[in-house]
Simulated scan of single mutants.
Amino acid sequence: MTVSVPEGLRLDVNLSILFTELPLLDRPAAAKAAGFDAVEFWWPFETSTPGDAEVTRFVRAIRDAGVRLAGLNFAAGDMPAGDRGLVSLPRRSGEFRESLPIAIGIAQELGCRAFNALYGNRIDGTDPAEQDEIGAENLAIAARAAGDIGAVVLLEPVSGVAAYPLRTAADALAVLDRVQREDHGWNLRLLADLYHLTVNGDDLDAVIATHTGRIGHVQIADAPGRNEPGTGSVDLAGHLGKLAANGYSGYVGLEYQPSGASADSFGWLSQTTKELHD
């Protein structure tokens, strides 16, 4: 099965989930060799405060590969261990805030204008209202920092972790509405990961019809399985077509787990799409 990505939408490759068979700093060049001009990353460092040399190596790897950094996560904790962000964690929000100037500096170097702020899991014994209060405060701080360079801050519903409280588009938008009411966060947007929304039972057609104007970034994988498009049952071509028809013209991040080698996982792209994005 092939999938045609509508003209006007731009593809990028998430190099925190694709090309992981390579060292992190080799992945941008591999994405370029596979025909892509843009990439995105989760937080690419082991700590929220990497040293200057480590940041410089990361920036150089992307610049030398000749690709654009289309998206970057703020520090999100230990993702393999189950963390899903620091935004709403009272005892760890300092780590989140420390990552902001580092991410902003990287973005200024590479032209990135979209940051993903993973909200964080609920903590046993901590009042959810307390978490939501610090979450709103941290999103406002992040939005102001990103706004200084004309960038947006994204909030993402996530599947697979029961403690993560934002599961639907409505969940995430309710948080953004609160921040915007209290702090006028003009540059807060929804990250619409079509895989996560599907797995969580959200109505993609309704989300697209109602909220396209609030979507700042899109990511795709098929479901079930979170593999490349065409391996599951999600009508990704149809949903992307509706997004484009409703005015979305941003990046579509390929955030899937390849069934085999990453470089061999792009056969689902139609020839027309390949010609548009090569």
Rank of each mutant, 00 (worst) to 15 (best):
S93K: 15
V252W: 07
I106K: 06
A65K: 00
G135E: 00
G35K: 09
H239N: 14
D205E: 13
G51L: 02
F74W: 10
Y195K: 11
S270V: 07
R113C: 00
D37Y: 06
V218M: 03
A162C: 00
L191S: 14
A75W: 15
I17T: 05
E182Y: 10
D26V: 11
T2V: 13
L9S: 05
F96G: 08
A163E: 14
R68Y: 05
I62W: 11
D202A: 12
I123F: 06
S99F: 10
A53L: 11
Q180M: 14
F266N: 11
V55T: 02
D235A: 12
L254F: 05
A263H: 02
G77P: 06
S93N: 15
D52G: 06
L236I: 15
H196Q: 07
D203K: 09
Q271V: 13
Q257P: 05
A142R: 00
V55A: 08
W268A: 07
G85S: 03
V59L: 09
P6T: 00
W42M: 15
V218A: 06
N121F: 09
F45M: 09
Q257C: 10
L188E: 00
V152P: 01
Y195F: 15
T49M: 07
F36P: 03
I220K: 09
S88V: 04
G201C: 07
